[in-house]
Design a protein around this nucleic acid. Structure first.
Lengths: 185, 185
DNA sequence: GGACGACGAGACGGTTGCGTCGCGACGTAA
DNA sequence: TTACGTCGCGACGCAACCGTCTCGTCGTCC
């Protein structure tokens, strides 16, 4: 029987190592070292660096994304931005996510896993939000949910991950208002 | 006298290698191999992998970014999106840019170089566009140029680099309309 | 209390890249 | 013609990591 605490320690170490050096530089030796574990313990569970990371991403996907239902488009958008900004302001996550996105272009398995773990659920939530807004008459029926997602999270991702600028007081409110106006256009 | 054609071959190889394997995995040996050049020729010009890349980014910065002046906010925004989408659809650039952005978090020198090469000029252009629009009465004086940049290029970057989805016919027009509406909100 | 299996540690040969050095070939400028 | 500097090539010792293996230890079931 594999010891659960060892498994958890390895998973945590992978996460930290991924943030510290990135997928490309990450080594099994480094993970074992950080976890305070023998290399054997790692190889007994996963067969490669790639499977380790895929496992981690899948675990993340299992969490799911809460679908907001605040009763107004603005409220839903604001709630989405709140959740996304929490995730992207986490220093480890904000390093790991873009790193894996870059690697995804080179490893189809990573690409698929991320798509399943993040994009699909995000697109699902966006589709729900748009559907509700259309039902309330807040948006035209022709609204494309994918474009909605672009307009809602794009500016936030750009600011937090690309520019790496802070979020001034009330900025999420502004972004939410902007997004609603953009969707109505 | 260092031979110019050799220098150019190395620079080109760095660019290709950066796109193929990323900064983390990039090696001087690989660059020399790809350029058809001895390692000596590389070390004679640059002292490390980092200086090679910094040199490349600086060269990119020297190009500058053309400031649109179409006479309308929509026109300016549309022009900005056009330029940005051309850059981000280039398969090599769309691999190299996010890769360097991720590495920037670990190497302050890269961060500074990218800031000087891309963000500063983008922010400058955005400031000009906003200023003109304010002068025409298209935007309120209180408009924050940085937020304008977030709202204009964020959705495009998200779609092209993060989601890696295509650009349907007329999508840039939609994005431009959305951005204008968002800025007016 | 004995058998079993996972554990950490670390040795193993192999691969890759590091940065330096020496080689003979080539081109250019005195 | 001679002298010099760069060229491609490849060897050098060093370091890190690969994936496999063999230890002796420890905890848990039967």
């Amino acid at each position: 029987m594999l010891r659960e605490d060892v498994t958890d320690a390895i998973r945590a170490a992978v996460f930290e190592e991924l943030a510290a050096v990135g997928f490309a530089r990450m080594s099994i030796e480094g993970i074992a070292r950080r976890a305070g574990v023998g290399k054997t313990a790692v190889y007994r569970r996963w067969k490669s660096k790639l499977s380790l990371v895929l496992d981690l991403v899948s675990a993340f996907a299992a969490q799911g994304l809460p679908a907001p239902a605040t009763g107004s488009l603005y409220g839903d958008v604001r709630a989405l931005l709140e959740v996304a900004s929490h995730a992207l302001r986490h220093p480890v996550a904000s390093q790991v996510i873009p790193d894996l996105l870059v690697e995804a272009a080179r490893h189809p398995e990573i690409s698929d896993a991320i798509k399943a773990a993040l994009l699909d659920s995000q697109q699902g939530v966006a589709a729900l939000v748009v559907r509700d807004a259309v039902a309330r008459g807040e948006l035209p029926e022709s609204t494309d949910p994918d474009r909605a997602l672009d307009v809602i999270v794009g500016p936030l991702y750009w600011r937090l991950v690309v520019v790496r600028a802070g979020l001034p007081e009330g900025y999420l409110d502004e972004l939410a208002r902007s997004a609603v106006a953009a969707l109505r256009a």
